[in-house]
């Protein structure tokens, strides 16, 4: 049970949030111009990384804001939290 530091509300229990999967997968601006392969890549393929992952969380039972989290999926340590549109504070 993590504590997530919502950039809008502060530290809250994980149960207030829902996970939104890998971050920075940008929806193609011109989907119709992609091949089936490229579209499948956007739609389904994931890094599913073991280690530092950049991911999205949604403060569903709170401010209803989506934001980004940097979490190590091998030990669940959260290294940083940042708003949508911001650059990741760590690489």
């Amino acid at each position: 049970m993590f504590i997530i530091n919502c950039p809008f509300c502060g530290e809250r229990d994980q149960s207030e949030f829902s996970a939104g999967g890998e971050a920075h997968i940008i929806r193609p601006k011109q989907p119709t111009e992609l091949s089936d392969d490229e579209w499948a890549d956007f739609l389904f393929m994931r890094k599913n990384i073991k280690g530092i992952q950049f991911e999205r969380w949604y403060h569903a039972h709170g401010c209803r804001k989506w934001f980004n989290v940097v979490r190590d999926t091998s030990n669940d340590k959260i290294h940083a939290v940042y708003k949508m549109g911001e650059k990741p504070p760590i690489k």
């Binding site: 049970m1 993590f2 994980q14 991911e55 091998s74």
Partner: peptide, 12 residues
């Protein structure tokens, strides 16, 4: 609902 390789989930 989140990715994790820790072999532990949340108490909820």
């Amino acid at each position: 609902a989140y990715v994790s390789y820790t072999q532990r989930g949340s108490h909820n």
